[in-house]
Design a protein around this nucleic acid. Structure first.
Length: 799
RNA sequence: GCCCGGGUGGCGAAAUUGGUAAACGCAAGGGACUUAAAAUCCCUUGGGGGCGACCCCUUACAGGUUCGAGUCCUGUCCCGGGCACCA
C-alpha cells in the first residue's frame, strides 16, 4: 500500500490549468475537426464586481456538458467572450469618474482570471469582446445590411427620460414610473429613433418555435412576448366620410359596440373634434402627454377620457355612436382606436359605468354577470345572428361586413419593432451619415468600423442627444455619396445588437476581412448546444433569432435558427431570495474557490438542486462534496489489483455508468453526482478497490471535477489527458444482474418485501408470497380473487 | 387580471413518469480511535403507539378516478417567475 499524498486543490488545480494551456488541450482544430460540437454559453457582462455565483452556476453546467460531449468523442469548441458595451458599464464608469474604455479592460482581466480558475474548457484563442473595433466593425456591418434591405428605419417615438440623470432609460430601467437608479419620476419624451422591422418576422419567429428544441418555459415566454391575436379590422364611418378603423378580437360583439375610443395621439382627433369640445380635448391631450409612460399604463386606476362631440356609424347596427378620446387606448397597439363593448369587456365596462354610457348585452353567457368576457356564449340582440354560438358568429359577421367593405380579418402582434438607438456614449456608433442632398447614407463597408472616439465628457446631458453630438471634430464628415458636407449619426446601437450575432464571430475571430468565414461557419454553425438564463428569453434570444433570419434571407448564412437546442438553467437564490447587492446576500465565488477548490465548488453548485430549476445556496452542504472527493482520492491511492470484486459491485458499476450517462445528457447533474457517491459507498465496503473499478468512475467524474480527475487518472497510470479517453459504456446484462426486492401488498397495503431473482414469473412470486409469514397472516384461508404483478417491482394480492 | 413553474423530513433534495415515499448529501444524537481535540470510521434519525415481533398515520388543503396516486382529474389556498388598460 502506498502513502496517500494529501489532496491540495489549489496547487493541483493550478498545475492542470497550466498543463491545459501548454498542451493546447482545449483547442480543437477548427478546420479539420471530424465531429464538430459547438458548445455555447451566454457570455458575461464584465462588471466591476467580477464573476458572480449565478455566472459560475451557468458556466459550470454548460462546461460539464461540453466536457461530456468531448469524452463522447466530439471535437468540442467552447468559446468565451465579453458583452462589454452598454449602459451598465457606462453608469458604473460615471459613478467612479473614469472612462469605460479604461475600466472595461481591467474588469475583463479579472473575469479572465476567474474563468480560468473555475476550470472552464475554454478555447482562449477565440476570446472576443464586443467593444473591440475588430468586433463592432461587423456589428455595424450588420446594421448596414439591414438598412440596405429596408429593415432599418427612423421614426419619432416616445422614450423614458430621467430628468435628474439626464438620460434615456430602457423600459426595464423604469420601476413603477421612477428611475431605477435615482428614484426620480420619469418623463415621456419624443425623439427620433432607429428601429428594426422585427414585426415583419413575427409570424416566422412564432412558427419557428414549433420546430426548435428549447426549454418549454423559454418558448412560452417568447410566445407571450410576441403575443399573437387573431381578429378583424372593422370600419366605423363618420357623417363627414372619415373611416375609423378599429381592431378587435371579438367581432361577434359588434352589435354591442355603443361608443368608440381613440387614443389621445390618434391622427383623426383634431379633425373629428367638434368646435365646442376643442378646449376640453386639447386640455386632456396635454394632461396625458405630461404623464410618464409607465404610470399611464397602470391599469387599475379610474379611467379618464373626453367626448369629442362627434359620432360614427356602427357598421352592424347602423346606429350613430359617440366618439371619445381616452388614454386607456394605446396608439402603439392595433390601430390606436377601439370599438367599446362595455357588456363584454372589463375596461369598457368600467369606462361606460363611469361616464354613464349605454351597456348592451349581445352574448348570452349563463351564470356570468356583466361584463361577461367568455367567448363561449350565444348571440342575442344581434339581428340575424341571434342564437348563434359566438365563435361561428365572429366568422360570419366578418364575412357579412366584408361584403360591404367594412371588415377585414387581421392578425395583430404585441411585439413592437426593435428600437435600437441609444442616446448614449458606450456603444458602437450607428454607421449612418446624414447628407442634405443624399439623405441618410450608410457608411461604406471599406470605411468600417466607425470608431467610437475616446472622449472625457461622456456624461449624457439634457438635450436628449448622445454625448457624441458635442464633438464636431468627430461628426462632421464628407458624404460618401456626393462628397458634400455631412454629419454622422451620433446615437449608438443597443447592446442587444452586439449579442445578437456573437456566436457567428467566435469560430472566425482571426478573420479581419469578413465577419464570419463561410467554411468555418458551415462547419460549426448552427450552435450545437446553448445554455443560459431565462432572463434573456424575450430579448437576446428573440433578437438573435431575428438577426439570423435576416442574414439567412440575405444569403449570408445557410440556416435561419442560430440555436436549434437551448436549455434554460435555474436561478441560484440565497436564503430564499434572489441575490442582490441591496439585500447583501451576494455570494462571491472567489472565496469559495480559494477555500475549497474549483472542483468542490463546481460539484457543490451542481449538487444543490436540479440544474434547470436552480436552488438555494447554503454553504453547509459544500463539505459533503469535499468528503466525497477526499474518499475517492484515498481510494485511488490504495487500489489493489488482487482485491476480489463482488458481483454486486460490478453490477453497481454498470448501473452507475447507465445513470450518469443519461443524467449528464439531460443536465440532471444533481442525481448524476448522487449516483457516483452511491458507487463510492459500495466500493468502500471492499477492502480495496481495483483499478478497473475506478477508472470508469474517474472518466465520468472528469466533466464535473476536471482537475482531480486528471490527477487521479495520472496516478492510476493513465496516459495523456483524461479528456482523451472514451466515455465508459455499460453492459445492460451486468447492470440488471443480481436480485431485486419486490413489494408484496395485500389489498393494496404493503405487508412484506421479498428478495427474488430478476424476471421471476408470476406463479413463483405468488407461491413465495403465500409462504411468507407476514403475508400469510392476511390471506390464510381466504381466497385470492385477483393478482396484480409488476415484474421486479410489486405483487398485489386482492382477497 | 392573464400565462408558465412549484408546494415532499430539521434543511438541500430523490422517486424508474401510475407500482416499496424520503435515494444522495447536510445538520443532529450515540459509539469507536485519541491523554485531549480536529479529522476519520460505524450506528440511529418523517410522525405516533407498543417491553416486543409488529401496528397506525404521512407528499399544501378538500374531493374524485384506480387493485394501487407525490405522480392523473376537479375545486381551494399559498410561493416563485413572466406579461399587463394589448382591444
Amino acid at each position: 500500500m502506498r502513502n496517500i499524498p494529501s489532496y491540495d486543490p489549489s496547487s493541483l488545480e493550478a498545475k492542470w490549468q497550466a498543463r491545459w494551456v501548454e498542451r493546447h488541450t482545449n483547442e480543437p482544430d477548427l478546420d479539420r475537426a471530424a465531429r464538430p460540437f459547438y458548445n455555447l454559453m451566454m457570455f458575461p457582462y464584465p462588471s466591476a464586481e467580477g464573476l458572480h455565483v449565478g455566472n459560475m452556476f451557468a458556466f459550470t453546467g454548460a462546461d460539464i456538458y461540453g466536457r461530456f460531449k468531448r469524452l463522447q468523442g466530439f471535437d468540442v469548441f467552447e468559446p468565451i467572450g465579453f458583452d462589454a458595451f452598454g449602459i451598465h458599464s457606462e453608469n458604473y464608469a460615471l459613478q467612479v469618474g473614469k472612462n469605460p474604455a479604461t475600466l472595461i479592460p481591467q474588469n475583463i482581466a479579472t473575469f479572465r482570471r476567474q474563468l480560468r480558475q473555475f476550470g472552464g474548457m475554454y478555447d482562449w484563442r477565440h476570446e472576443l469582446s464586443t467593444t473591440d473595433p475588430a468586433y463592432y466593425k461587423w456589428t455595424q456591418w450588420i446594421f448596414v445590411q439591414l438598412f440596405k434591405a429596408g429593415l432599418a428605419y427612423k421614426k419619432r417615438a416616445a422614450v423614458n427620460w430621467c430628468p435628474k440623470d439626464k438620460t434615456v432609460l430602457a423600459n426595464e430601467q423604469v420601476i413603477d414610473g421612477r428611475c431605477e437608479r435615482c428614484g426620480t419620476a420619469v418623463e415621456q419624451r419624443f425623439l427620433d429613433q432607429w428601429f428594426f422591422r422585427i414585426t415583419d418576422f413575427a409570424e416566422r419567429l412564432l412558427a419557428n418555435l414549433d420546430h426548435i428544441d428549447w426549454s418549454a418555459s423559454t418558448k412560452t415566454l417568447q410566445r407571450n412576448w410576441i403575443g399573437r391575436s387573431e381578429g378583424a379590422e372593422l370600419i366605423f364611418e363618420t357623417p363627414s366620410g372619415k373611416k375609423i378603423t378599429v381592431f378587435t378580437t371579438r367581432p361577434d360583439t359588434v352589435f354591442g359596440a355603443t361608443y368608440l375610443v381613440l387614443a389621445p395621439e390618434h391622427p383623426f382627433v383634431d379633425e373629428l373634434t367638434a368646435v365646442e369640445q376643442r378646449p376640453a380635448v386639447k386640455a386632456y391631450q396635454r394632461e396625458v402627454q405630461s404623464k410618464d409612460i409607465v404610470s399611464r399604463r397602470v391599469g387599475d386606476k379610474t379611467k379618464t377620457g373626453v367626448f369629442i362631440g362627434s359620432y360614427a356609424r356602427n357598421p352592424a347596427t347602423g346606429e350613430a355612436i359617440p366618439i371619445w378620446v381616452a388614454d386607456y387606448v394605446l396608439m402603439e397597439y392595433g390601430t390606436g382606436a377601439i370599438m367599446a363593448v362595455p357588456a363584454h369587456d372589463k375596461r369598457d365596462f368600467e369606462f361606460a359605468t363611469q361616464f354613464k354610457l349605454p351597456i348592451r348585452q349581445v352574448v348570452e353567457t349563463p351564470g356570468e354577470p356583466l361584463p361577461s368576457v367568455s367567448e363561449d356564449g350565444t348571440l342575442m340582440n344581434s339581428g340575424a345572428f341571434d342564437g348563434m354560438p359566438g365563435r361561428d358568429a365572429a366568422r360570419k359577421i366578418v364575412a357579412w361586413l366584408a361584403e360591404r367593405g367594412l371588415a377585414t380579418p387581421r392578425v395583430q402582434y404585441r411585439l413592437h419593432d426593435w428600437c435600437i438607438s441609444r442616446q448614449r456614449y458606450w456603444g458602437p456608433p450607428i454607421p449612418i451619415i446624414y447628407c442634405e442632398k443624399c439623405g441618410a447614407v450608410p457608411v461604406p463597408e471599406k470605411d468600417l468600423p466607425v470608431e467610437l472616439p475616446l472622449i472625457d465628457d461622456f456624461r449624457p446631458d439634457d438635450t436628449g442627444v448622445s454625448p457624441l453630438a458635442r464633438h464636431e471634430e468627430w461628426y462632421f464628415v464628407k458624404c460618401p455619396q456626393c462628397g458634400g458636407e455631412a454629419r454622422r449619426e451620433t446615437d449608438v446601437s443597443d447592446t442587444f445588437l452586439d449579442s445578437a450575432w456573437y456566436h457567428l464571430r467566435y469560430p472566425s475571430t482571426e478573420f479581419h476581412d469578413q465577419p464570419f468565414d463561410p467554411a468555418r461557419t458551415t462547419k460549426w454553425l448552427p450552435v450545437s448546444s446553448y445554455i443560459g438564463g431565462n432572463e434573456h428569453a424575450v430579448l437576446h434570444l428573440l433578437y438573435a433569432r431575428f438577426i439570423c433570419m435576416v442574414l439567412n434571407d440575405l444569403g449570408h448564412v445557410q440556416f435561419d435558427t442560430p440555436y436549434p437546442k437551448f436549455r434554460a438553467h435555474g436561478l441560484i437564490i440565497k436564503d430564499g431570495a434572489k441575490m442582490s447587492k441591496s439585500r447583501g446576500n451576494v455570494v462571491v465565488p472567489d472565496t469559495y474557490i480559494h477555500q475549497w477548490g474549483a472542483d468542490t465548488f463546481r460539484m457543490y453548485l451542481m449538487f444543490l438542486g436540479p440544474f434547470q430549476e436552480g436552488g438555494d445556496f447554503r454553504d453547509e452542504g459544500i463539505v459533503g462534496i469535499r468528503r466525497f472527493l477526499e474518499r475517492l482520492w484515498a481510494m485511488a491511492y490504495q487500489t489493489s489489483d488482487t482485491a476480489s470484486v463482488t458481483a454486486q459491485a460490478t453490477s453497481k458499476l454498470h448501473q452507475t455508468i447507465r445513470k450518469v450517462s443519461s443524467d449528464t445528457e439531460s443536465l440532471q447533474y444533481n442525481t448524476a453526482i448522487a449516483a457516483m457517491m452511491e458507487y463510492v459507498n459500495v466500493l468502500k465496503e471492499q477492502d480495496a478497490a481495483r483499478t478497473d473499478q475506478l477508472t470508469p468512475l474517474i472518466v465520468m467524474l472528469a466533466p464535473y471535477a476536471p482537475h482531480i480527475a486528471e490527477e487521479l487518472w495520472e496516478a492510476l497510470g493513465g496516459k495523456g489527458s483524461v479528456f482523451e479517453q472514451c466515455w465508459p459504456s455499460f453492459d445492460e446484462r451486468l447492470a440488471s444482474a443480481g436480485d431485486v426486492e419486490i413489494a408484496v401488498q395485500v389489498n393494496g397495503k404493503l405487508r412484506s418485501r421479498l428478495t427474488v431473482r430478476r424476471g421471476l414469473p408470476q406463479q413463483e412470486a405468488v407461491e413465495l408470497a403465500l409462504a411468507d409469514e407476514s403475508v400469510k397472516k392476511y390471506v390464510d384461508g381466504i381466497k385470492v380473487k385477483k393478482v396484480i404483478y409488476i415484474q421486479d417491482r410489486l405483487l398485489n394480492l386482492l382477497v
